[in-house]
């Protein structure tokens, strides 16, 4: 099947012709498959935010192309709004974009811009509210009466309600407490499972990325440093650490155990997997 998104030699340069000229993204190429859960990780300034704002046409490439479903999104600049409906982008701290009188109206903002009305509109508003755990009785409340975590959910629902083919989430759990983080990620996982939609998760947290995605893209200094399944990427843990990036805590434990002479695969990245490895090792050890 054809990839849903193809990024071809994307370069974005800020401040061309000024002394501040600087490339935030340089010659990046990668594909995003239909239905994939892709994680993007990298430090502030690695080019993450610039990259994702290209995927829905908020920024225009200085060079290179973005293909959505095989077609250049800038082929017809007048239709760029349609691209934004097909590639939904949830910014960091999205709760600061809420503006409507009621939660319902705020979630409906995106879909009504799309031209949805009547029952179709009502259905997608209610469905996405349910998906993120907003109760029916909360829909008529002012979004500003809700708690911080709930506001975040409303903002997320506002983008999900546009029913985009690709959903990009920039640090969706930033600033939430552990329970809030876990709940929200569970909601996103459920959305992914039920709708078979492509998700791109941008995060600073290696642990969060490791637990949720199928494939990881590691960015550093405007370039792609690594790309692969979590196991492939974390197998290069030393390299990640050298690049000043983190690896999941579990992977660090595994690496430390290997250094202490235990037969452990240093690429494990979940507590469950390392537990299994250790138990298997114990059985094996007891047998001889």
């Amino acid at each position: 099947m054809e990839p849903i998104l193809q990024i071809k030699h994307l370069t974005h340069t800020y401040g061309i012709g000024t002394p501040f000229q600087r490339s935030a993204v340089e010659d990046m190429s990668f594909d995003v498959q239909q239905g994939e859960f892709l994680g993007i990780i990298g430090h502030t300034g690695s080019g993450k935010s610039t990259l994702i704002q290209h995927l829905n046409g908020l920024l225009k490439p200085t060079e290179g192309q973005i293909l959505l479903g095989g077609r250049d999104i800038w082929a017809d600049p007048k239709k760029i709004r349609d691209v934004r409906f097909r590639v939904g982008l949830v910014f960091q701290y999205p709760e600061y974009q809420l503006f409507e009188e009621t939660v319902y109206k705020d979630i409906a903002f995106g879909p009504s811009n799309q031209g949805k009305t009547g029952e179709a509109l009502d259905r997608c508003v209610r469905e996405s509210a349910r998906l993120v755990g907003i109760r029916d009785d909360q829909l008529e409340k002012s979004p500003f009466e809700l708690s911080g975590g709930q506001k975040r959910r409303v903002a997320l629902a506002g983008v999900m309600a546009m029913e985009p083919d690709v959903l990009i989430l920039d640090e969706p759990t930033a600033g939430l407490d552990p329970a809030g983080r876990e709940n929200l990620m569970a909601n996103i996982q459920e959305y992914h499972r039920n709708h078979q939609k492509t998700i791109i998760l941008v995060s600073h947290s290696m642990d969060e990325i490791a637990r949720n995605v199928d494939r990881i893209l590691v960015l550093k200094g405007a370039h792609i440093l690594m790309s692969g399944t979590p196991a492939e990427v974390f197998a290069r843990g030393e390299e990640l650490l050298e690049a000043g990036l983190d690896v999941p805590q579990v992977t660090r434990v595994a690496m430390a155990l290997k250094a202490r002479g235990l037969e452990i695969d240093p690429a494990v990245y979940t507590v469950e997997a390392l537990e299994r490895e250790l138990l298997a090792l114990r059985k094996g050890g007891a047998a001889c």
Binding site: D177, P178, A179, E182, P248, V250, V253, V271, E275, L279
Partner: peptide, 20 residues
């Protein structure tokens, strides 16, 4: 209480419950 423990402690806890 809606909190998590560091993964290190989580791992040790699981191993302990497995009898290690």
């Amino acid at each position: 209480m809606g909190l998590t423990v560091p993964d290190t402690v989580d791992l040790l806890d699981r191993l302990q419950k497995d009898g290690v």
